[in-house]
Design a protein around this nucleic acid. Structure first.
Lengths: 254, 254
DNA sequence: GCAAAAGTGTTTACGATACACCCATGT
DNA sequence: ACATGGGTGTATCGTAAACACTTTTGC
């Protein structure tokens, strides 16, 4: 590649920002990190960083995800990593004023992860933590705005987080993506609680069970059972090969 | 904004590329332009160009669209322009090798336009034209690959076009976007032919009619009628306020 | 009259909902 | 025994698919 010629085109900084979502304690949570420097010093922000000169966008996103969480990414190219998370491109944000220092175009990515012990970053909860998206956005799970968030995110990261949450909420309707929030083996009830947390609704356990077990390729039984939720032992499943759900899961009216 | 400091971050060129789709003669077509310079000189490519230093990404896309077609964009911010087209961000492509000259990140946008007289660019069909997406991609409307395209698009524009077509095909299922392919006033039959062209299927005219006229807010009758399709005069409609279709239009199995 | 497209009515099938009910474990 | 969550059966309702049929124009 020829050397950079500043007269040929306007130079931009390109970053990747990550919306990393998980379900903890029946609430949809996002990973946020504390900013150590200006601007927005001390504010919470989405994890992210510069794209390197010879790195693809998805590679940069996977690298940032691993650096922040230790997770490996399930991309279409490498679908079956251990301890993996779903990772997909979300949207790109390039308002000229979104960063006061310089012109930055951020390619946001969406990652879905199972419940993890605790964020890395030295294990210091002051530098990285999972926060309920309700608190970060000031909305209910149904999408209604309640009040302004107590601690707004830095830059336009509130907008990015909102778009990522909206993507996740709509995509679990017609794809098997909800299983990305679950550990490798999970019960139907655990999967149902994922839907309930992400959508902020209560689903009928009986109809949900029939629906997901009746969709070919969605769930495959592993043979094992568990009583970790109490009550009668539940069958364990893992995600099947199907990625598209037809007919889709129906999200109740809000 | 401080001046550019090359030591602070790797510099990228940022462009917008446009997937402009329309329905002509019962076929889904895309706008392509002939490249006048290397690389890929003489090949067909998607229209696009550099983002200017103080321009938002959506502004740059709308500017390129107007330059190439004379269309104004219907964005969420300015929804009601005359002779307008739907415009939305599609995805961002940043493979380090996608442009042999330098590191270029392209923010692709998707535009849907009604059937237009002929492309601009001086009215010269050798420099810009509408081509059926089947020919450009080498696939059938159902999505099956038939053969390699006779004239592959420059750069990774074949991939971008494929993603844009896929977005359009899925989005008309659950939104009123198909009306963006129609003139301001249209008949139910014309709208049905849009769905048939985009999906490459044949739909039952009777069930289609009941479905679209029965969805509140989708279509509003203007009172006029037309016989431009032959047969019994058909009512004219314009797009209603509803943007989301619930329940969605069901795409037949392919 | 005939062709062509618009529009209505009717039958059938399938999936979603609601909910009664039984099952298998922990305490 | 009883609470808890897992899982099955069944009636009802709404929407989609299939298709017979009528309406209104042009030729």
């Amino acid at each position: 590649m020829p050397p950079y010629d500043p007269s040929a085109f306007p130079p931009f900084a390109v970053t990747v920002d990550l919306v990393v979502l998980t379900v903890r304690k029946h609430a949809l949570c996002a990973l946020v990190v504390r900013r150590g420097e200006a601007p927005f010093q001390g504010k919470w922000a989405l994890p992210g960083g510069f794209v390197r000169p010879d790195e693809d966008l998805s590679t940069a996103a996977a690298r940032e995800l691993t650096e922040e969480t230790g997770l490996c990414a399930h991309t279409p190219e490498a679908p079956a990593t251990a301890n993996g998370a779903h990772l997909e491109q979300l949207a790109t944000y390039g308002d000229p004023d979104r960063d006061p220092r310089m012109r930055v175009v951020s390619v946001a990515h969406l990652a879905l992860a199972p419940d993890l012990p605790a964020p890395r970053a030295g294990g210091d909860a002051r530098h990285a933590r999972w926060s309920p998206v309700e608190e970060l956005l000031g909305t209910t799970a149904g999408g209604r705005r309640t009040e302004l968030p107590a601690e707004p995110l830095a830059f336009d990261h509130g907008t990015i987080l909102g778009d990522g949450v909206e993507r996740a909420r709509s995509k679990i309707e017609y794809s098997s993506l909800a299983t990305a929030f679950c550990p490798p083996e999970f019960t139907v009830g655990e999967l149902r609680r994922v839907y309930e947390a992400v959508w902020g609704v209560v689903l009928d356990p009986r109809n949900f069970h029939r629906k997901v077990t009746g969709t070919p390729g969605f769930l495959v039984p592993t043979g094992g059972t568990t009583t970790r939720q109490g009550g009668r032992p539940a069958q364990l499943f893992r995600a099947g090969g199907a990625t598209l759900l037809n007919p889709p899961m129906l999200r109740p009216e809000v």
